[in-house]
Write a protein that binds this DNA or RNA. Structure first.
Lengths: 215, 215
DNA sequence: GTCTATATGGCGATAGAC
DNA sequence: GTCTATCGCCATATAGAC
């Protein structure tokens, strides 16, 4: 889209837009930290504002309420992790390799791990602002993985005794559970390695394949 | 200890002790509910007191601070679940059967599941009052299960590719992760059944054996 | 053992100046 | 776009009467 060679004049020629965007990003980064450390309910706007280096009122100018801020944080992070795993690929093995790759990447961003770990537990309450988000997210992930395992079963690569649905549930459970141990153990376990050995128990897969990145 | 046939006179002949104990138990039950629904940090003494049917000051007469109340709740629940799993048994298979039994029992007490799920995530923060509790609890559980799997490996019942340590980590992760899904799905998955099929993938075990209860 | 009253402080959000 | 000031509420914990 827009293949002209000459740069089009921006709609907002003033530098304020860029600055505002940078401020928003700074806020989202700090909010992620705070929600990760204390959860949504106990994390405070005051703490976020302090870390950003502005007042609470200033912060609320960019995100009109605490709930809106949470939604923005979740959206912000979703974009990044979606790019790591080819969830729409017909190749089941590629999806599994993507998940191991994601686990490896996650180990480099403990804040994000903590965020999802704490929020998914907190959001099991039906009255939590992110409850619907997590219910939908889990349902979608499980459905996608079930299809991936069904494809692998069609190729005769799923070991006896495992159903596609059971494998999908187990895989998600493992990823979540490993994160809790990893956080409590302060990185003392290797999430990606544990995932690989476990997957190897119920599916035949060649880990050496390198998938082309989705970008 | 104390084998006399005649009942010994109680140290506190008055009925107040029994009443006080009942009050303590009522408080602990309500506190478990509140901490399960909102976590420790967001759960309030006010809410606990309301559910018990007494004032905040009255509650604080029995538990002098919020932290002490949390510790009492955790201790209270630990006794019950310890009785379900023969963690000190030399029979590895019996331990695994006990864990499946525990998962089945847990499905009947969603409040307890929620409590541990929410608290274990919240307590990954080093400054959380229950941080040390959970670190120790996980270390102990992993060590115990590692020994159980090592025993099974000695009998040639551990499938190739799984180490005792890897199996222990995977097992704990699965139990934790299944609870999150179970809570979010409102009981839509069968935790015990999922555990059984997963265990079957890396260990040879006869589920039909009924272990004698520890009582 | 339980209460009311209160101290002290953090919270989310708004109003309005600059 | 950012600030100060403020509102109204909820939190934990204590003091002291009954």
């Amino acid at each position: 889209m827009n293949g002209e060679s000459k740069p089009v004049r921006a709609r907002k020629p003033r530098g304020e837009y860029a600055k505002s965007k940078a401020t928003r990003t700074a806020i989202l980064d700090c909010a992620l930290e705070v929600f990760a450390e204390s959860g949504y309910r106990s994390g405070s706007l005051r703490e976020v504002a302090t870390r950003v280096g502005m007042s609470e009122a200033g912060l609320l100018h960019h995100f009109p309420s605490k709930v809106k801020l949470l939604e923005a944080v979740l959206d912000h992070r979703d974009e990044r992790s979606r790019a790591m795993v080819p969830l729409d690929s017909p190749d089941g093995a590629a999806i599994l390799r993507g998940l191991v790759r994601l686990a490896d990447y996650n180990a480099s961003v403990p804040g994000v791990v903590e965020l999802y770990c704490v929020l998914s537990a907190e959001a099991t309450s039906v009255d939590h602002p992110a409850h619907a988000y997590f219910v939908e997210r889990y349902a979608l992930t499980r459905r996608t993985l079930e299809e991936a395992f069904a494809a692998l079963a069609g190729e005769g690569k799923l070991r006896g005794g495992m159903t596609p649905r059971g494998a999908a549930i187990a895989l998600i459970a493992m990823m979540d559970g490993l994160q809790v141990q990893w956080l409590l153990e302060d990185g003392g376990i290797d999430m990606a390695e544990e995932l690989r050995t476990l997957f190897g128990q119920f599916v035949e897969i060649d880990w050496a394949v390198v998938d082309s990145p989705a970008t």
